[in-house]
Structures are given as C-alpha cells and as structure tokens.
Design a binder for these strands. Structure first.
Lengths: 182, 182
DNA sequence: GATTGACATGTCGTTGCTGACATGTCGCGG
DNA sequence: CCGCGACATGTCAGCAACGACATGTCAATC
C-alpha cells in the first residue's frame, strides 16, 4: 500500500492532477523507486479523497481535477516516513538480473556486464549536468524538491557502473585461471 | 512475471525444494532484488513443472520435493537475462522513502537520514567480512554463486551511506542559510 | 513420553496491479 | 475545417501477491 504514500509525497510538493502524477512516475521516481500507471492512480486518488487524505482543490478546463494534500494526508505521510524501518516491498527486475548474472556462461555474462556498465555511465553523463544546473539555478537557495532524490539516482548509477567493472575483472580473472587449468 | 525467472536463476545453481527457495528470498535476494513468500512459490513451481521449465528431481523424507532446472528452463532463463533491457517492474518502499524525505521538516529529515546512514554503515560492516571470507575460502578458485550479488549489495550500502551523509550536509547548509535569513 | 521448533507443502479470500478498451477536449499545423 | 498529438479521466477482466489458515513430519530437549 505504498502507492498512496508515493502520491501523498508528490502532492506534498504541490497540488497536481492524476495526469500530472502519472507523468511523475515516468521519471526517476518510477525508474528506481516505485512505478504506477494511470489506471491505478485515478482510483486510488478517489479512495484517498473518500478517506480525507486529499481533496479536489480545483477543476480545470479539460475535466482536470487538481488534488491537494489535506492535514490528515500530511500527517499520514509523516507517519509513514518516520515509521519503524521494517522490511518493505522490494521488486526490481533490473537488480534481479544482476543477482542472476552468474547463471550465464562467462562470455554472455561479460557481454551483459559490459552493457550494464555502458548504460550506467551514459545515465551518469545524462544526470550530472542536470544536477549541476539545478545547483546553479538555485544558487545557495533552498534545496529544490527532488534534489536529494536526483543525487541518489546519480550515485546509484555510479555505484552500479563501478560494480559492473569490478565484476568484469573478477570474471576475467577466474576465466583466465580456468584456461590455464585446462 | 519475474518471480519465475528468480526461481529459474536459483535453480540454475543447484536443485532445491520450495522450502529452500522461500528461504533464499529471506536473504539478500529478497532484501534488494525481489521478494516472494512461500504461498506464491509453491503454485509457481507447479505451473513451471506443467510447462516443462523445471522437474521434480527427487522426493525426500518430509514430503520434500526437490526441483531441478530442465533444458527448456535454462533456455528461458538465458533468454530473459539477455533480453533487451526494457524498463521492468520497480517497487521499493525504502527507496521511495528516500525520494520523499524532502517532504519532512528539516529536523525530522535529519533524524531520518542519520538513521539511514547508521543502518547502511552497519550493513557494510556486516557484509564486508562475509565477502572477504568468501574470497579467502575459495582462494583463486571459481567465483562462488552469489559473489557478484553480494558485492552489489555491499557497494549499494556504501553508496547509500555516502548519499545520506551528503544529504545531511546539503540540508544543514540550507538550514543555516534560512536561520541567517530570518 | 511430551513439547517445541525447524522442516515442508499447501489452500483460500482479499487486495494490488496491468493491459486493453473507452471517451472526450483543446490547440496547432496543414 | 480536418486530423493529430498532448491533455485528461475513467472501467474492467484477469493475473499477481499477501496474510491467514491448515496440515503433517522429524529431531532434540526436557
């Protein structure tokens, strides 16, 4: 039931429509934290409105309904964020692949890891200027919403790229040995 | 439908029972790649056996059924691992919390980030000796199954701990400014 | 010889989630 | 003025997943 907390978190920054929220999930949030499609978002917003966690703040031209966080909603968000850090839901297909890469033959594993490293380095190259620009724009002003999240993603990619490089080394070392043994 | 690939991957190392597999998900695999309970695993194994991806290899004392990968199962696993790296399912409550930490008031955010840093450093301290021991045991032998995955987890925790420390710095910097502005 | 805890497998009702389908508006370029 | 793409909201069938419940074995401790 974390979808609702994701929605509450997004609404804590600014009121938004279901459409806005569904696009937020297409970005970094959906890429490595939590994904949801609009088919899940709209019903959940209605349910949350029923429960008083959010409220329709205004209605726009194209049937647009802008939702805003209520006091109860903010309280629920804070409660969830500060909750005992129990073991929550985890499901990540990409990470799963990395866990299982050793099931591949060395040649395939090498190609896969090279792909991972390349992809992650490209993402780092994409994100770094974005973050730098954010910092310049705001200068020494308040942290823009999502700045910490962006940094999280950047460091994540750096770590995975480094891991892939390390794994390639280890793989090569054990392959070299096998060749000598044979 | 990645649960089945997680199961295929685990079985690619060695045959195992549903019980064994469900315990595998309680470890690092379930902690940051994919989680599943036994209630999902047993039916999935039956279905996969129906489809010929796995087969009951032997039956043990306590009604234990040991499953082994078939040729088809291995082929399916390889296919999935080498597939175009489309955007797969992502769902991680812990990461979501980190994305939304900026919804908290600075004091609460600080306490939260301190907790994250502390927890990650403890996990690094727990994992590092385990990995070092693995490397010593095997010496220069073949990579033990899961060694790459373990390294992944270790580097992950290091990266998150560093991120939390960085975030605390940034938070403090922007708070200090606010205080001066007031 | 009884109880406890790890081993071991399952069902079932409810809820979460996805993909396909459905509907309509508004602004812009051709 | 027509069509297209972005905006905008929704339903529904079917599959995935979780928590509660159910059942039984075997080894060790008390």
């Amino acid at each position: 039931m974390s979808l609702r907390h994701a929605l509450l978190g997004l609404l804590s920054d600014a009121p938004a429509s279901g459409y806005d929220l569904s696009r937020a999930f297409e970005g970094d949030l959906g890429r490595y934290a939590w994904h949801a499609g609009h088919t899940r978002i709209y019903p959940e917003l209605v349910r949350m409105a029923d429960e008083g966690l959010v409220a329709v703040e205004s209605t726009g031209p194209r049937g647009r309904k802008s939702y805003a966080l209520t006091g109860d909603g903010l309280a629920e968000l804070r409660r969830w964020l500060l909750d005992p850090p129990e073991q929550g839901a985890v499901r990540n297909e990409t990470v799963l692949r990395m866990f299982l890469v050793q099931a591949l033959e060395p040649g395939d594993a090498r190609r896969y890891l090279e792909g991972v490293a390349e992809y992650c380095e490209a993402e780092v190259a994409r994100l770094r200027p974005v973050m730098a620009e954010l910092d310049e724009q705001e200068g020494t002003d308040a942290l823009p919403f999502g700045r910490l999240a962006g940094e999280y993603g950047l460091r994540q990619y750096e770590a995975v790229a480094a891991w892939a490089a390390w794994s390639l080394d280890r793989l090569e070392a054990s392959q070299g040995r096998d060749a000598r043994d044979a």
